[in-house]
Simulated assay, not measured.
Amino acid sequence: MEYRLIYCSRNRIEGSEQQIAVEIEKILLSSRRNNEQQNITGALLFNGLAFAQVLEGPRSAVEAIYATICEDSRNSHNVLLETGDITKRDFARWSMAYSGPDNDGKLYQHLKLTDCEKDASGVAKRVLDLLKSVVHAHV
């Protein structure tokens, strides 16, 4: 049985747009390398203010990666949106897919931490649906 975890957190990366982009690239390189080793797949959404991420794979590996993320100083206020067993991975082909600001430079305005705290399951569904639509559009 596979396991999925969805969370959101506040961005704590400071600096210019270019400095933030470099730090996001470091996160992606490390995530992709570590996830491949642990048989984890998923996707990361970043809007400049917050992160939302889906992690899929063996439960112990997903929970260990999430614990590491919670300790990472580049984010804070982690809110666990959803966890549970799944029958099929939604991001099976992606060690870590990524979606940032869209082509028009607009951010995903509807990713707000206050919503996460009020309606975690609703936000989890929106995050999952959004990431699936973005990622699958690029397959």
Rank of each mutant, 00 (worst) to 15 (best):
A97K: 04
G48A: 10
A61N: 11
L111N: 01
N103C: 09
D104G: 13
A50T: 10
G48F: 03
T114R: 11
D104Q: 08
R74Y: 00
S73R: 15
T87V: 14
K88Q: 14
R74C: 01
P58T: 04
L44E: 05
V62P: 02
L80W: 00
G105Q: 04
N103W: 12
R126L: 14
A92T: 01
A43T: 04
R93V: 07
E71N: 14
A64M: 06
I65V: 15
L55N: 05
Y66A: 06
T114G: 12
K118Y: 14
D90N: 13
K125I: 06
G57A: 02
K118Q: 15
V62W: 00
H110D: 15
F51S: 06
K112L: 07
F46D: 00
S121P: 13
K88V: 14
D102V: 09
A52L: 11
R74T: 02
H110F: 11
T114Y: 12
E71Y: 10
R89Y: 07
R89E: 05
F51T: 06
E63F: 01
F46R: 02
N78Y: 07
R89T: 01
R74P: 01
S95I: 04
I69Q: 05
H110T: 13
T41Y: 08
G42W: 07
T68I: 00
E117S: 00
A43W: 02
A64C: 05
G48V: 11
L55P: 09
H110P: 12
D119S: 10
